[in-house]
Amino acid sequence: MTPSARLQAAIELLDWIIAAARDNGGSADNIAKKFFKERRYAGSGDRRAIREHVYAAIRRWGERPKNGRAALLGLVAEQPELREFFNGSNYGPAEIAADEPVASGEQIPAWLVDGFAGLIDEPERNALFDRAPLHIRVNGQRSTEVEVKETWPEAVGLALPQGYELPAGTQLEDKRLFREGAVEIQDLGSQAIAMAGAAAEPKLVLDLCAGAGGKTLALSAMLPPESKLIAADTDRGRLSRIEPRKRRASARNIETILLAPGKEVDSLEHLKGCCDLVLVDAPCSGTGTWRRNPELRWRMTPKRLAHTTELQQRLMDLGSEMVKPGGRLIYAVCSLLDAEGGDQTDKFLDNHPQWQEKSIDLPIGRPYRKGIILSPHHDGTDGFYFTCLEKL
Rank of each mutant, 00 (worst) to 15 (best):
N90V: 10
A194I: 07
P363H: 03
G371T: 10
Q312H: 09
A159C: 00
R131Y: 01
V183R: 03
L305Y: 07
T287S: 15
E173G: 01
I108C: 05
H53M: 04
L259A: 06
P153N: 02
F129V: 03
R241Q: 15
R131N: 04
C274R: 15
V278G: 11
D346M: 11
R125E: 05
P325F: 04
K215Q: 07
R69S: 08
G45R: 06
T381E: 03
A10Q: 12
E63P: 13
T289N: 10
R39C: 09
S227G: 02
A97T: 12
A306G: 09
R248H: 01
A42N: 07
P261C: 14
V148Q: 00
S143H: 04
A71V: 06
S359R: 14
M1D: 02
E78L: 12
T387E: 10
A332G: 07
R238A: 13
W152I: 04
V183Y: 02
A282R: 06
L206E: 05
P153Q: 02
Y55L: 01
T256F: 14
I254S: 13
V113Q: 14
H352Q: 08
A42V: 06
A21I: 11
L389F: 07
L217N: 03
S4T: 14
N139I: 01
A249T: 05
T308H: 08
S104K: 08
S220H: 02
E84I: 11
G197K: 11
L296D: 15
T2R: 07
G288Q: 07
R83P: 03
K66F: 01
S4M: 08
A339L: 12
L134N: 00
P101E: 01
K33I: 09
G115Y: 03
